[in-house]
Design a protein around this nucleic acid. Structure first.
Lengths: 329, 329
DNA sequence: GGATTTTATGAAAACATTTGCATTACTATT
DNA sequence: AATAGTAATGCAAATGTTTTCATAAAATCC
């Protein structure tokens, strides 16, 4: 900080004038400010963090950035922590829990003030690492009343149930399920279990032949739909693990000459950007990504700065958005 | 580093064993490694960076994360620099150049090793700041043969031209243009100029009434399309500034009872995720987001580590993807 | 107007790491 | 066997900032 010492004060005073402006006289403060501007000084957060001081940096590890729903939550989380003066360090692991561990280490090398993860399913090593390093952590996107980590998210099991309910309410009994692979993805598996629960409870048999797998890609879902809809005996409704799959399924149906919802009903989960504007609009269970990101950012920065203490667990409400892709039998 | 000194060596040796493993004998190296594992030591990148040493951190400033096309390029850029051992610090400015400047300062406080920006349009203050701080910088997404910053991207003007060409080649003369606001967004404005150039060159008059503005949102584009298509005299083809707008426009047309491409042709720019799978598939100009991000990451890390010196300017080729939404008159 | 409190500032230690220089202990070379 | 050369390590200084403690100056009190 020899630089701003050109204001003829000691480094200590410069530091104070940044962090506790009240402690330095207006005159010197002005002199420092002028020197800072003149020299184009930018303070060094790295050097700060060496004193156990905060870095003003939060690490976020997501399965992938390149997916509508995560993009939305990343954006709002980023905006939210930005308001509290924090910057986002981001890493993705492509649904690979070992890579998640590696990313966590990487973020820790940068001494982030906290790490936000997606969901509850993490390797033991990761959890141990967090514990051992004492890094504040939270889970985004999922909610559970008894979660180990503080969390802000929705109840995915409930989402599956609501979707199933909606279809059942319309009198559907022949319901097919199209979901992403459940391993390493507790969102998908919770939704799947929720849906199955509700269907079983209603006495609807789960036909093994009507359970399909599609990853998070429109193309693959479209393919799956094309395969399944060409069969002789097909469901009257399709419950999809997320809106991307639902969109793919609808395109697949259309390309087979089937009309949605006249020939087949489709319901998604998520309410991603664009789902409302489709023709017909996608009936889906809305997961409020924007507010999840925003609330998570607020709560997490509060927790980090010590503004609040508690182990928060916040459940963001789901909503069944009735549009045009599902209709009564 | 008193911690790993439990391996009975000096801090210097530990540091060397991390950064120049060749300089320390295999025996001690092993001893150090064991101690590191036992104590769960994670090295402190912040402390490194205080020696003018690199941070292994790259800052990326995008207009928004929450947009298919940026999400894709962010993802591939992130993966690419990750391979070189770097981590991504991300910030977004919502198409506000003053906020971009603020974000740049924020990233500089963290002493990032380099800053990647989207496009060429930046405030003078931002450019001056980069210059003054000597931070390596690059432009993502755009290409220009004479760009100030090193760049990896596509020629957006050319994209507009190709799109116009495709429509002209199909015999269309009554062509409407739907674009995002061009200010602070040189991608959009370059495309718009490219398209207009080509249309003028072909002797097609630009009807003021057929130039519409829609931001990057399906909903708004849908609205615009609904308004314009209800008029008596309407174009036979719509050239859209990007695929999101094109998608919105198509939904808008469908909701007005018009069929695409029978009643109206639509062409987009970008080839975003999902454009291929629509029904009908969206005819568009493909901008190779994945390879832009990947190449940019490679070149930029090379430049930062000093592996290569040159002021790179890389033009990624565009491609006209002919699908089903545009057809000959 | 001296004693006491308050306010403003500086000096120095601390943080975790890197690096140039010095040192020690070997290994070749003659 | 002596010399030069090399390999492995340590010492100490340096990095930019914060913080504790000390000091100096000014303001307040009776």
């Amino acid at each position: 900080m020899a630089v701003a010492k050109a204001a003829r004060v000691s480094p200590s005073t410069v530091s104070r004038s940044f962090n506790h402006p009240g402690l330095v006289s207006p005159a010197t403060r002005k002199r420092i400010t002028r020197a800072v501007e003149k020299l184009g000084y930018i303070r060094n957060r790295a050097a700060q963090s060496m004193h156990g001081r905060r870095n003003a940096t939060i690490g976020l590890i997501v399965p992938t950035i390149d997916h509508a729903i995560f993009a939305e939550v990343i954006q709002s989380f980023s905006d939210s922590i930005d308001r509290a003066g924090f910057t986002l360090l981001i890493a993705s692991h492509s649904y690979d829990l070992d890579r998640e561990y590696a990313m966590m280490r990487k973020l820790m090398e940068h001494r982030v003030d906290g790490i936000a993860l997606v969901g509850f399913e993490h390797s033991d090593a990761s959890l141990r690492l967090l514990e051992q390093q004492g890094t504040p952590a939270m889970a985004l996107w999922n909610y559970a009343p008894d979660s180990l980590l503080p969390c802000v998210g929705a109840d995915n099991r409930e989402a599956g149930r609501i979707a199933a309910d909606h279809l059942l309410g319309f009198g559907h009994r022949d319901i097919g399920l199209v979901f992403p692979r459940p391993d390493g993805n507790d969102r998908a598996s919770a939704r799947l279990w929720g849906a199955r629960d509700r269907l079983s409870a209603a006495g609807v048999p789960l036909i093994a032949d009507w359970q399909w797998e599609a990853s998070y890609s429109i193309a693959q879902a479209k393919q799956v739909a094309q395969d399944l809809l060409r069969r002789a005996h097909r469901p009257t409704a399709l419950l999809c693990g997320n809106d991307v799959i639902a969109q793919g399924v609808i395109y697949g149906a259309q390309s087979c000459g089937l009309r949605v919802p006249e020939d087949i009903s489709v319901i998604g989960i998520g309410d991603f950007k664009g789902s409302a504007e489709m023709e017909p609009g996608l009936t889906t269970i809305r997961i409020p990504a924007r507010s999840i990101g925003e609330i998570a950012g607020e709560r997490f920065t509060d927790l980090i700065t010590g503004a609040s203490e508690d182990h928060f667990r916040i459940c963001c409400p789901l909503e069944c958005i009735v549009r045009g892709t599902a209709r009564p039998l």
